[in-house]
Design a protein around this nucleic acid. Structure first.
Lengths: 199, 199
DNA sequence: CCGTTCATGTAATCTGTTACATGATTTA
DNA sequence: TAAATCATGTAACAGATTACATGAACGG
């Protein structure tokens, strides 16, 4: 249902499956992903249910192109979804599961390197969103509080992405410091006990 | 693969499927969820692959109980996973998709109420994690920097949960203020234009 | 002419949820 | 004695990924 509703939202502006894939990758990737192999069947399904209408357009490049657009019935379905409760699903973070069990490796340096790699990825994502925001702020003097309704809502989702990534980065830095402290403590314990027992 | 590896991690301590469900619900729910109907087949699968070993134990209550435990091969598989890169999957947040399209409703008050409901849920989750942390801090004087390795890693995952939830709550508050401002501006525009046009 | 981008799709597989089925034991 | 908890499972469905298949047009 998630994807279907998102397509109804995106297709208030006409677009092809291929176009939509770009939107997922470049536009809303920070809160939803989808593959082409998932998008195409979904479009057909929604067309059959009369929530989307399709028309064939011949594009300059490649073969024929099918452009979809939300119908009045589709708009009504979209509104129903929007009027409902915030859909907070269970979140799954495999990297946290990895960290949770990482005592298994018995080596604080491995935990440290793990968090350092995490920091890199988080930093990259954060920079990318920050760029998006600063470009936007430069180009539109109404940013952020005098934007038209659509853009304002887009901005809100951008902000939460920015703020949670910033929090994660802060956590990485905090954790790196503390894991380092533990690693050097373990190092010390090793050398003093070696010193005392003579080996 | 995600669940399988997590089970290998959890079953370093012997437990039944039913026990594990409680761990998902009460222990690691903030980063991974699983249903019993998913856990039981996974246990069988892992047992067939000799990554877990099962033994039957008759409990006081209910019918026979099967207690599983990670084997040496299972431990090796677990370590391979832990040595790998941090697994950052694509995150899907349906409530952000809802917010993204909420201009469709053409009513800032609906957006406001949506964010208020969100704030409630986030607040509840945050409080629950905060309680977990403060209980832990009270009961264990080594908390957080002198904990044994396992507990320290658990603590790290707790911290990131706490910090991202705090960031989300901050975002809610920020957004509530700004959506309110927009709602009252829209209100004003309505009344001045009514005043000017005389209807 | 070769790689990239445009463009659409199918098939197999994996992962996860909801609903259903069964039955013992404990607690109110 | 009825509801809650303990305990294990199956079946049907839904959602998503990976691999495969096809082919036109453009840029270097």
């Amino acid at each position: 249902m998630g994807l279907d509703n998102i397509l109804l939202g995106l297709l208030r502006q006409p677009a092809s499956g291929y176009d939509l894939k770009r939107v997922f990758d470049e536009g809303i990737g920070h809160f939803w992903a989808a593959e082409l192999s998932q998008i195409y069947p979904a479009l057909k399904r929604l067309e059959k249910r009369r929530l989307l209408r399709a028309r064939k357009v011949d594009s300059k490049r490649g073969p024929g192109k099918y452009v979809y657009q939300t119908t009045a019935a589709g708009q009504a379905a979209l509104r129903d979804w929007l009027e409902g409760n915030p859909q907070l699903g269970d979140e799954r973070f495999a990297y946290l599961a990895q960290l949770y069990f990482m005592d298994e490796l018995g080596d604080a340096n491995k935990t440290l390197r793990f968090v350092l790699r995490l920091r890199e990825s988080v930093g990259r994502k954060l920079e990318s969103l920050q760029q998006t925001e600063s470009r936007w702020a430069q180009e539109d003097s109404r940013y952020p509080d005098h934007l038209p309704a659509f853009d304002f809502h887009v901005h809100l989702t951008l902000r939460i992405g920015l703020m949670t990534l910033a929090a994660k980065l802060k956590w990485c830095d905090e954790s790196i410091r503390r894991v380092r402290a533990r690693a050097t403590q373990a190092e010390k314990r090793r050398s003093t006990s070696t010193g005392r027992t003579g080996r």
